[in-house]
């Protein structure tokens, strides 16, 4: 099984390293032919406005929409979650939302970088040990649709959720060195 990481801009390198560590065949995805070659995909953190523009420039918008609609498993972290959301507040009007995860998110909702933080997170699906979640200028999920399952919350707000094969988290699992979320995403039934 090949797991791709959208590598146009942002923290793709750390996701590729994490995937390799859990034994997945990890591939950087920047072009439509590379997207066609992978079985599942991680949309990493970065700047969602820049990634939106580069998706357009590299001809990936339509192919990616089709793969997601076709049931490819996809995990969006931070900016990646915004790409998957139904709608985004405090973003830019031309920012791309694939609407695969029925949530409303507010971009950069905690404030400037000095408000970025780490927090231990209880995630039942990952076992009893808390996951160290690192939030960098993270978005906040303000609404979840009826088909969205919330897997973890912080201060009552969803920070990890999924809708079928579409996963999203507002924090950065690739920064902490804890590989359990990557492993879970890779082990999910094909």
């Amino acid at each position: 099984m090949k797991v791709g990481v959208l590598a146009l801009q942002g923290a793709a390198g750390l996701h590729l390293a994490a995937l390799a560590s859990v034994g997945a065949a990890a591939l950087a995805v920047r072009r439509p032919d590379e997207l066609a070659d992978v079985d599942r995909l991680i949309l990493p953190g970065g700047e969602s406005t820049t990634i939106s523009m580069l998706l357009e420039a590299n001809g990936l918008v339509q192919p990616l929409a089709e793969r997601i609609a076709g049931g490819m498993a996809v995990l969006g972290t931070c900016a990646g979650l915004l790409l998957l959301a139904t709608d985004v507040a405090d973003g830019r009007d031309d920012q791309r939302c694939f609407g695969a995860l029925d949530i409303s998110a507010r971009r950069n909702a905690y404030g400037p970088q000095s408000e970025s933080f780490e927090a231990p997170l209880q995630v039942a699906a990952l076992g009893p040990a808390p996951l160290t979640a690192i939030f960098i200028r993270s978005p906040v999920v303000e609404r979840t649709g009826p088909d969205v399952e919330v897997l973890a919350r912080l201060d009552g707000r969803p920070v990890l959720c999924r809708q079928g094969r579409v996963w999203g988290c507002t924090f950065h699992p690739e920064l902490s060195g804890d590989l359990r979320l990557h492993r879970l995403f890779c082990e999910e039934a094909p």
């Binding site: 801009q9 923290a11 953190g45 970065g46 970025s116 933080f117 960098i136 920064l175 902490s176």
Partner: peptide, 15 residues
């Protein structure tokens, strides 16, 4: 430090 350099990670391959 990983929260501080974490933002730099998000800027990689960017301008």
């Amino acid at each position: 430090m990983r929260v501080k350099s974490g933002l730099a990670e998000m800027l990689k391959r960017g301008v």
